[in-house]
Computed example of a mutant assay.
Amino acid sequence: MSYIQYMNTIFSALAEPHRLRMVELLRDGPLTVGEIVDRLGLSQPQVSKHLRVLSEAGLVEVQPIANRRVYKLRPQSLQDIENWLGSFRRLWETRFDRMEAYIEALQAKENKPADPK
């Protein structure tokens, strides 16, 4: 899978509001399917379906404990999102730095005393 396909899979998974909310819930720590059901008010089959999509996208991982399944965030996929966003952050910071320098140059020109001749 190419990097673009990988990022598309992640963002497609997060585009669904219930899945995004699940990721937000898991930010605070691992949860069982039942705990997610209780917090979101969805049915167990719905939650399991959404968790499967998140798992296939690499956003969560599951650990079976006895008859329960505990889900937690997968840090690497979140780091991949951070790295992707970071490339855009650097681009905008560079542009803002150039804009700031341009504005400072304009202000210096405006504040320069008139040359009496």
Rank of each mutant, 00 (worst) to 15 (best):
D38Q: 15
W92N: 10
S43V: 00
R27L: 13
S48G: 05
A15Y: 09
E82S: 07
R52W: 08
D38I: 08
I4T: 05
L20E: 07
R95H: 15
K109T: 07
Q107C: 09
Q44G: 02
H18V: 09
Y71Q: 07
Y71C: 04
R89W: 02
K49T: 10
I4A: 13
N83W: 11
N83K: 12
R89Y: 03
A114K: 14
S12W: 01
N111G: 14
M7S: 01
R89E: 15
A66V: 14
L54A: 01
K117A: 02
L59C: 09
R74G: 01
M7H: 04
R74N: 13
A108H: 05
A57P: 00
I4C: 05
P75W: 00
L51G: 07
L14Q: 11
L106S: 06
L20R: 06
H50R: 07
R98C: 12
L20D: 03
S43I: 03
M1Y: 07
G58A: 05
G34F: 08
R69L: 09
A57L: 01
N67P: 00
L20N: 11
F96Y: 09
M22A: 10
K72T: 00
W84E: 09
D80L: 06
Q63K: 11
D80I: 10
D115P: 02
H50Y: 14
Q5D: 15
G58L: 02
A13H: 13
D38M: 12
T9H: 01
R74H: 12
S77P: 04
E61M: 05
R69T: 08
I10N: 09
L85Q: 05
R21S: 10
Y6D: 02
T32C: 01
